[in-house]
């Protein structure tokens, strides 16, 4: 069924390649196409084909063990409107939106501040880079153990601190309303990747620019405002787009924190049941792969719209 599209696609590109032997411009095109060919081939085989397959499954009822049964838009319709069959669909979407709304800005700012701090000191940069990156490297089980302790209602570091300054201790991982902020704090703590990308971005800023600014008498703030920020635009854009995609698909943190012998759950009151966690449950706990695929494509459309808006309204480069 996808063959027609594929054929048309191939024909068009063949034409470009054949035509490119003529002028210099086409020669450039040919090289460009050659350069992206491995990536595109990979994309066709390991991304596009599976995506089309998943799209097909989203229109079927499929438990992965028997042949898929075509059900048309049933999965989509019931996910969106049937609150008995899929009671947590909108809930998990809300959880994810809330998580994204809190975790994204928090880890973004943390990463930038950490990168600027490291960039601002002369000695020990290597040490701090390693130290701040360790949360990404540390085994998930160790991370979960430490954070469960920090958030522990009786012995936890956080509550001991709150009590010490005379505040009311909280049930961080027990009370539904506290769970998303608690998760967001962990994600900000694990911002090492964004931090090193910012560092790489800062490293790519030619030192002449600073020198020129210093001659003009610019202070630290002016240098940040008029050199670093504009020069970091491509980096920032990348981190915004991918950070949002990652936040929408958050799974690991919750899985490690709330996973129990009885299977995957979203914590008390399902307050930590993120969209992809719920999707995972539908796929591999309830064996509703068709529903899981439909959920994937609903999320896909949401992310696509948000990303489109980002491409449309967020500047991609400083030029």
């Amino acid at each position: 069924m996808f063959r027609g599209t594929l054929k048309r696609f191939c024909k068009r590109y063949l034409k470009v390649i054949m035509g490119s032997f003529g002028s210099f411009r086409y020669g450039e095109s040919l090289i460009g196409i050659l350069f992206v060919t491995p990536v595109v081939l990979y994309f066709l085989i390991f991304l596009l084909y599976p995506a089309l397959g998943a799209l097909y499954y989203s229109f079927t009822e499929w438990n992965m063990r028997t042949r898929p049964i075509w059900v048309g838009l049933w999965n989509y319709k019931h996910l969106l409107f049937d609150r008995i069959k899929y009671p947590y669909f909108w809930h998990s979407l809300g959880v994810t939106a809330k998580y994204t709304g809190i975790a994204m800005p928090l880890s973004f700012v943390t990463a930038l501040v950490l990168a600027l701090l490291i960039n601002a000191v002369k000695r020990g940069q290597d040490f701090f880079k390693v130290a701040f990156y360790l949360p990404v490297i540390t085994a998930g089980a160790a991370v979960a153990t430490m954070w469960r302790w920090i958030y522990d209602p009786l012995y936890g570091l956080l509550n001991i601190g709150l009590k010490a300054v005379g505040l009311q201790p909280q049930r961080w991982l027990g009370e539904p309303r506290m769970i998303i902020p608690a998760l967001a704090i962990i994600s900000a703590w694990q911002c090492g990747f964004a931090m090193i990308v910012f560092l790489a971005g800062l490293a790519s800023i030619p030192s002449r620019l600073y020198e020129a600014a210093e001659i003009d008498g610019a202070g630290a703030w002016q240098k940040f405002r008029y050199i670093m920020l504009p020069m970091l635009k491509p980096t920032t854009f990348f981190l915004l787009v991918t950070g949002l995609i990652a936040a929408f698909q958050v799974f690991d943190i919750v899985y490690v924190l709330f996973r129990t012998g009885g299977g995957t759950i979203g914590g008390p009151g399902q307050a930590g049941l993120t969209y992809v966690l719920s999707l995972f449950d539908h796929a591999f706990r309830y064996y509703e792969m068709g529903v899981a695929c439909a959920m994937s494509f609903i999320l896909f459309v949401i992310i696509l719209i948000v990303t489109y808006l980002q491409f449309r309204f967020v500047p991609q480069s400083y030029e």
Binding site: R12, V16, E28, S29, L30, I31, G32, I33, F35, V36, V39, V40, F43, F46, L47, L48, Y49, P50, A51, L52, G53, A54, Y57, S58, M64, V241, T242, I245, Q249, V276, L279, F280, A283, F284, M289, A292, C293, M295, S296, F297, L299, F300, I303, L304, T307, F311
Partner: peptide, 30 residues
């Protein structure tokens, strides 16, 4: 390197990141 359809192709590639990996797992294994 500019070539016809480059930016559209790039966006198409990018869009594949937006589908949760769980859905792609079985066709990929296949």
């Amino acid at each position: 390197i500019p070539f016809p359809g480059r930016d559209k192709l790039f966006l198409l590639l990018l869009s594949s990141m937006m589908i949760p990996g769980i859905a792609l797992l079985i066709p990929r294994v296949y």
